[in-house]
Amino acid sequence: MNNELPDPGCGHSLDELEEYLRTGQSAAEQHYLRCPECQAGLAGLRSLQRLSGQLAAADTEQAGSADEPWLQSILGNLRLEMRSGRSIPLSSEYPEDAFFETEGSLLALIRRIGDDVDGATIGKCRLHGDITTPGADVMIEVNVTAFFGYPLPAMIESLRSRIAAMISTHSELNLTSIDVTVTDVHEHFSPAPKGAVNE
């Protein structure tokens, strides 16, 4: 895996995390256990490992090697999301207090939602709008890699409703829209019953 993008905010790269996952050893293990950006990166890499394994089981010609353009795209977005990003304000009871959640924490949650929807893997994920200003309009853009055999409208609706519910629960963002785009469909994978979309 070539890491063309800069390292994440904490200084550790996705390559280092991948090696740690592969070997189970790293001098920076204690850091990984205490760094939210690295934990988000590790979670994303584990998700990709599962996806690659599924593809390998379905078709060795689509084994999900690191050279696959779509996989590179997901990895590139994962690198971007390994930054804490902007600080999203949360309201406080006392004006002197200050509460925030990081943009990276919400993006990681959105990515996890994709893991829970059968047949979907989230690639690009962005929060558009001035999320640092309370009440400002915010739009979410999500690109999805889908497996053939799953009804895409139902998959997209499931993603949209789950993301909306999550944002409503875990933030005070004024969410105006969620744009979901299916950017890739892998046609050689259909081990699960067709039409199965988690609700």
Partner: peptide, 16 residues
């Protein structure tokens, strides 16, 4: 206590 600043940096299913 003058102020309390709390930032949520991540979400997880289990305590660590």
């Amino acid at each position: 206590v003058s102020s309390v600043e709390i930032t949520v940096c991540g979400f997880t299913d289990v305590r660590f």
